[in-house]
Amino acid sequence: MSNVQQKVIEIIAEQAVLEVEDVSLDQTLEDLGIDSLGLVESIFSIEEAFDISVPFNANEPEKSVFDISSVAAIVRAVEGLVKEQTT
């Protein structure tokens, strides 16, 4: 498991009030019971943890390059942003 994946899952697990082991990559935020406010808070935690800026407007989530369709998609998106913003 990559460091990014580990950290993202920790953040999502904390938001969902679950153990890290109970979060799997194929789950959606809805599966995990994370609502729009929880999503915005998760994104903030991700930005703080990785020192990146995540482009995301809650009014048009589908237009964001930040894919939130599943835990795996979020991990990939964060990996991309870390690579893009730290090089």
């Binding site: 915005v40 994104i43 903030f44 995301f56 407007n57 809650a58 009014n59 048009e60 237009k63």
Partner: peptide, 20 residues
């Protein structure tokens, strides 16, 4: 800004293209 509900370009109420 933190709430991520703000538009960066315009306020377009009721339009399908509204973004905050």
């Amino acid at each position: 800004e933190g709430l991520r509900v703000m538009s960066k370009d315009a306020c377009r109420p009721f339009s399908a293209t509204r973004n905050g």
